[in-house]
Design a protein around this nucleic acid. Structure first.
Length: 567
RNA sequence: GACUCGGUAGCUCAGCAGGAUAGAGCAACGGCCUUCUAAGCCGUCGGUCGGGGGUUCGAAUCCCUUCCGAGUCGCCA
């Protein structure tokens, strides 16, 4: 709502000034740094420049024009301080407007930004035969949260888990299994044993480069449909997926499609043919490439031995998705280090003559670092996500036992708190920043954390549960109070925050907003007793609390956190 | 070497389509529970916004340069 004011004031004021001076004038409506200066602000320096009139004169003119804009009825006062014109809203009227708006909406913040449009999101996409690591967490929860945010914006969202179930690393695991693996041991604990084999392969390959050659052979035969290898592949895929589903269940993550790389195995030839037909494919040093210009390296489509590569499969997947889902946009939630790959992917699509290259977005995110260095599976330094989530849940349970030992369903709630703490710890940071793996920080329950949001929501819930409401009369004058109005102003920004998070593909924008809202509420809570005797005052406060709680809960849901009622 | 991303308080980060005295949390220190959940609230301490130039009425924000860290750079994904 506050944003609507900004937009409409800007529009009205510009139009009025354009008419008055008969020239293009563009102004800015922003929020002052300090709340005590006002609610909205118009800096006039740029107008002084374009009109070449003294500043005091411009200030007077803009002040005068401001009294004529459409929203002027909501203004309480217009001051000026050194080139800034500050508008203070009539808090009572503005509050009534926001509250009515809230009450008349089923799902506050829901908008029609993406009405009728489809977006495919490729996220999580773990490489099978390896445990689900902390490294996969980022893609999984950023993608999941973006999906939720996009749905809130009215998009039809197709969630795709593009499993890494093909490629030479996979062939390495098969080689190791067949040559020195033990079937019984592997069957006991498939995923963990298989990754051991993979790590072992890499160690041995360092001493014996022939192994890499063997793995490439296996991969080739697998691609051709060798029965033994395909059976093994099916077994490994199934066991891995079983393992991952445990984590997805814990996180509440779901997908519409689990079509991984293997699914596109028979769809790549068509891509190769099309590239050939369009004369884009060039033979270079024995391999087939597409030249992409001087600024970036060419895309390797086929290896010397004829086997396909990552980008070939991604192209096949891309066209399959385009033809199946008819997406308006496709998002790839994949780490920073693959930036070049997606630049190449887009460039190839563009070269092929399709116009949707610009609708392909690499939603990159920072690396998970350990001691400032990239984590790597090859060295076996893997941190299993399941262990992290369990650790966080155990710590939550300890906390509950200390703070609220009589709580019912302790274990379940502890899991919700622990998992959400890990999720929030990730999403609160802007996604492209690198991420230092630090368990202590993840399960720290004080300050800017998931539990802080849950705690705030639970506190409100607790009051609402015990509240006796005897009236529906509101006293909007209460919103003259700073601590009331601060909360309300923030509530009015919810929809804008969601749209901003959508435009920047950044759940962290929503996360920071929720922290701020929770903080404002907790300050309010310390100052005001809610369940007072005066029934109109009580009802007004309860109304404010309910709005706050609804937004906190909805926001947490969008981030992929669990909403709990007690803790 | 080329290209990309980052460098803001002791630590983790926000702010960056230029705007008013640079903001949070953690840590440290000091307060606040006979009243709705203290996983909270209030306060104190803490900053040459990596360095140097430039553009501008105004720069953490834009441009150039330099230092530091990370990532990527044809047969892995």
């Amino acid at each position: 709502m506050l944003n609507h004011f900004k937009i409409s004031i800007k529009k009205d004021l510009e139009q009025q000034l354009n008419t008055r001076f008969n020239q293009e004038i563009s102004i800015i409506v922003e929020e002052p740094k300090k709340a005590e200066l006002g609610d909205l602000s118009v800096p006039v320096f740029s107008i002084v420049k374009t009109l070449r009139k003294p500043l005091p004169q411009i200030v007077d003119i803009v002040k005068e024009e401001l009294t004529k804009v459409g929203d002027a009825a909501y203004f309480n006062k217009i001051d000026s301080v050194s080139g800034f014109i500050n508008i203070t809203l009539n808090r009572t009227k503005f509050s009534e407007l926001v509250i009515n708006d809230f009450d008349n909406t089923d799902s506050y913040g829901q908008n029609e930004f993406g009405q009728g449009k489809t977006i495919c999101i490729d996220y999580s996409s773990p490489n099978i035969a390896k445990p689900f690591s902390i490294g996969h967490l980022r893609s999984t929860i950023i993608g999941h949260s973006l999906g939720n945010i996009l749905e809130k914006c009215g998009y039809n969202v197709v969630r795709i888990n593009h499993l890494g179930d093909f490629g030479t690393p996979f062939a390495k695991t098969i080689y190791a299994y067949l040559n020195w693996g033990n079937q019984e041991i592997v069957e006991q604990d498939p995923v963990n044993e298989l990754v051991k084999l993979y790590v072992e392969f890499n160690e041995k390959a360092k001493l014996d480069p022939n192994l890499d050659e063997e793995a490439r052979k296996i991969f080739n035969e697998l691609e051709q449909g060798n029965e033994t290898y395909v059976k093994l592949w099916e077994y490994i895929r199934e066991e891995s997926l079983k393992d991952y589903m445990k984590v997805y269940d814990l996180l509440g993550v779901r997908f519409d499609s689990y079509n991984g790389e293997a699914f596109y195995n028979d769809k790549m030839q068509a891509i190769v043919d099309e590239l050939k037909e369009k004369k884009l494919l060039i033979k270079d040093q024995g391999a087939m490439i597409v030249d992409l210009g001087d600024d970036i390296p060419p895309a390797l489509i086929q290896k010397t031995d004829g086997a396909t590569l990552y980008i070939t499969r991604d192209l096949a997947a891309l066209f399959y998705r385009k033809n199946t889902y008819h997406f308006d946009e496709v998002l790839y939630v994949v780490g920073n280090e693959q930036k070049l790959h997606f630049t190449q992917l887009k460039r190839v699509v563009d070269k092929m003559g399709y116009d949707f290259a610009e609708n392909i977005h690499h939603i990159n995110f920072g690396l998970v670092l350990q001691d400032g260095k990239k984590m790597s599976t090859r060295k076996g330094k893997i941190v299993k996500l399941e262990d992290v989530l369990n650790e966080a849940s155990t710590m939550s349970l300890d906390y509950i036992n200390e703070k609220n030992p009589g709580l019912e369903n302790k274990e379940e709630i502890a899991t919700h708190i622990g998992v959400s703490a890990v999720v929030f710890n990730d999403l609160k940071n802007y996604r492209t920043n690198d991420f230092e793996f630090n368990l202590e920080e993840m399960v720290n329950f004080a300050g800017q954390t998931g539990p802080y949001l849950q705690y705030t929501s639970v506190r409100i819930q607790s009051i609402l549960d015990s509240a006796l409401n005897t009236t529906n009369k509101m006293n909007y004058d209460l919103f003259e109070g700073e601590h009331y109005f601060d909360i309300l102003k923030n509530i009015s920004l919810y929809e804008d925050i969601i749209i901003k998070a959508r435009l920047e593909y950044a759940p962290s924008i929503l996360a920071k907003y929720l922290l701020n809202l929770a903080s404002l509420f907790n300050s309010f809570y310390a100052k005001e007793r809610v369940l007072v005797d005066d029934e109109v005052e009580r009802n007004t406060k309860l109304h404010l609390l309910k709005m706050t709680k609804d937004i906190l809960n909805d926001g947490m849901r969008l981030l992929g956190m669990q909403v709990i009622l007690k803790m």
